[in-house]
Amino acid sequence: MAKLNKTIIYVALLVFSIVSLMPLYWVFSTSLQLSKYQDEDLKQSVSYVDSNPPKMYPMGVPEYFEHWGKARDAEKAGDDKAAAQHREIMDAIVKDTFSGFTTLFQKNNIGRWFLNSGYISVVVTLGILLFDSMAGYVLAKKQFPGKNLIFYAIVGTMMIPGQVTLVPMFMMVKNLGIMDTHWALIFPDLSMVFGVFLMRQFMYSVPDELLDAAKIDGAGEWKTYWSIVLPLARPGLAALGIFTFMNVWNSFLWPIIVLNDANLYTLPVGLKTLQDANLASFKLLMSGAAIASIPMIIVFILFQRHFVKGLTLGGVKE
């Protein structure tokens, strides 16, 4: 009975996770789908990308092996011409399978968008880690006039949704003359305050004795922070860093407002313009989606532990 229950639970969870992972699978499957396939018997070009019924896996894989087998048989039979023909088709299949990616890199500038997203995310993440840990450290460990006022001002604004400041932020960016530049993304992202709150929580666990000992040894404020506090806060920094990177990499609403120059686009903005252009085939769109999601998937697989930690740190209130 208990065993049967366990089986039911596993089956249910597997079904749920298939539903949950399906769209992501669909991105990769479609990005590698055959789009222009010269069908041997029909002598016409068929596309499996928008076929009905939809193909559930990249059709190039079975086709490739079919021709591989035929080529081998032809070679055995000594028919070199037929073998060469099959080899040619195999090359065409490989080329077509990856054509979404090659087109994006050659014609649609996606390499540029990728680099833009990447460097903006890295710069913001490093800046947030430095500034927020500095602020969190003194807010947790130092006593000075105005401390509570500053802290409550910062925490109070965490409640305000970002959309409230869209219009004034737009005017501000315009007045500063940084419209349609990457500064218009970097500055507002660097001012996010969630990390200050998170780092402050984390810095409480740094023992006072260590700080006092450093002071007695003659370490200055900066040295104490850099070589004692920061290493101890590493788990918190890892969690904050990952979430900041993810937020900036995926951010969408603000970038579509301030970016106009296609050379400055980040990946999500670029993907939207691809979709809007309507010229792009679905294979092309899904190839772009795959390129945009691969880094996050890698980050997630490498740092799954930190994701969990970061979520629980942010979620559990004192």
Partner: peptide, 15 residues
């Protein structure tokens, strides 16, 4: 269950 939420909503919406 968490993996789909690390990808951008832009991508999810496109699919």
């Amino acid at each position: 269950f968490y993996l789909p939420t690390v990808t951008s909503m832009v991508i999810v919406a496109m699919v």
